[in-house]
Design a binder for these strands. Structure first.
Lengths: 192, 192, 192, 192
DNA sequence: AATGAATGAGCATTCATTCAT
DNA sequence: GATGAATGAATGCTCATTCAT
């Protein structure tokens, strides 16, 4: 099992350093300090170990930051909190997020994974928007599903632009603007 | 020159069918009905012929749609027109846009190309937003540059979601929601 | 015919610049300012045009320097004159001689050519040595044929060492030493 | 290591049979009875394995023939012994010497190698000639360095002529004539 | 005779995967 | 389980040669 862990850790390093395509299985084994053949005791292919890397990171991201919704009730503050959390997490794992973006363009399996993740986000937000519309706090003309997807995409794409492509925008500038855009877009009154 | 055209046409076919990575140069030659060596009379590498495909499509996109801004003055209508035009164009070339997205994750040269294109869009919109802020028609709290990038990203990402990932959203639903989100986000009053 | 001449001249340039192996037929045509296909109107292959280059140089070497033995009778002076002439000619055409050396290692046809040339030289010298032995002026213990070959090889190899490999030896130093070595080797008395 | 040895042995065979240029790496692998890819476990290129072949032969040539100078003091005998030893060794490895000659005309790396070897020989002989001149046993008019190079070249070139080009000269005839030519050339008196 | 685009055989090289130890 | 040498399929690229114009 130590070998397996070493391989996953090494794989993350190598993937982040060389990119998915240029990462050779022999490089991963070498970085893990094991023989090239040992790779196949635990994984069958490059995409399988990549999945393991992603899985490991997902666990890391969940464990220490299990923020149960801390009783925030104001929708504006709720949105702001969610955006900040997402952006912090993205920044923390920027290299891996870049990698995921890359791999999802190369391997269909991961394209599906990313898609599902986006949909999950979307659904959660859809529910929120719909509820707020029913409460009369949000522009009733907006289609909740399309709106949820669009705003989520806006945030994730900006995270990519700033943290991966290194567009020179400060973190606070980014969060602040995205929050305002969400609020405005939904016509969430500050009075809310 | 007939050979060159045949190669570019064949390349587009093969790229759209197999993806950039799986497209073999020999396949392109074969699809063009020329000898494998003929490829190298016109191109030096796969990315060079891909650039030619992109260039050709860009020309196609410019020619018949040279819409000089037809005297639209209302910012809401201006935004709506731009969104519609962009989405129509994206839908028309969806396969190629998907390809560009893929290749820009694989080849740094195209990553740069896409980045520059995004920046150009962004700058145009930044200027518009700044002007509208000065006229008092747009939320003055928004940072023009971050806002422009965010909203552009929102639109292009939704185009990808709908036309490439085939998320089931109708064209009118999409344009309509994106327009509203732009207007709301900027706090552009319907009154103009 | 102008095309043929242009090709031969261009071939010499290209061969001397790039070496036999790296010289491409298309380069020769380009250097001659003719289409690549035109090469085949006059030559069938690289070694054929190389033969033409060699032939042309051979003609150049004969024409202006037709030194009939100008009544030299002293064997020592005869040898000295032959050595000097050979070395001057070698120096004048050093690049081509290097090329010949190279090509004779690559193409059997030219190996045979060089061999025959060496034999011709050898035979002339064999006759001379035999005659001098009969006159009692040369060491009678020496085998005329082996001696002739050995001394010829000594001179031609030193020409290569000095004019091609650029070993730092002055021309006069070279001629002088080789002359003495010939004379000594044959035990040709200065008294004549 | 068995594979490496098999490759070097096979390479020597293939090189001697086909010549350096026509030897394909796949042929060498095939002759060694290993997969084509295995070649690259041990060598990076054709010239690298050629260097290994040369190295191996050099070792073979050194081991069994470590002739410490057996107290020969007479310069004539010393020269005779050196010539005989050189010619025997050349004859024993004639095919490889021919190959070296060929490759040194093709690959600059080996040209340099051959040149250095010739210089080493030359320097040893230069020292000997200078010493004999000081002792008054050798013609003082000869330049020691040019003489050493010339006589060395004479011997090595004759070895090539006889053992590679198969000029019909018996071994004893060859050694004997070359010895006399050395002695005469230096004016080394039989009296010692 | 001249052109030069088109041809396609030929070979080096990489690297995921296997398997005897 | 671990090893790592051996495997061999797969493909890009060059360039001498042809031939329709």
């Amino acid at each position: 099992m130590r070998t397996r862990s070493a391989l996953v850790a090494a794989a993350r390093e190598v993937f982040e350093r060389d990119g998915y395509l240029d990462a050779r299985i022999s490089d991963i084994s070498k970085a893990a300090g094991v023989a090239s053949g040992s790779f196949y005791t635990y994984f069958d292919s490059k995409d399988e170990i990549f999945a393991a890397v992603v899985e490991q990171v997902r666990e890391e991201m969940l464990h220490p930051h299990v923020r149960q919704r801390t009783g925030i009730d104001d929708p504006r503050q709720l949105i702001a909190a969610a955006n900040r959390e997402y952006l912090l997490s993205y920044r923390r794992n920027a290299r891996l997020m870049a990698l995921l973006e890359q791999v999802s363009q190369i391997d269909e399996k991961f394209q599906a994974m990313r898609y599902e993740r986006a949909m999950a986000f979307g659904e959660r937000n859809t529910a929120m928007i719909r509820e707020l519309q029913e409460r009369g706090e949000v522009d009733p003309e907006l289609d909740p599903w399309v709106t949820a997807l669009a705003l989520s995409n806006m945030v994730s794409r900006m995270a990519y632009t700033v943290f991966v492509q290194r567009e020179k925008i400060t973190f606070e500038q980014l969060v602040d603007t995205l929050n305002r855009l969400w609020w405005n877009a939904l016509r969430l009154d500050p009075a809310g």
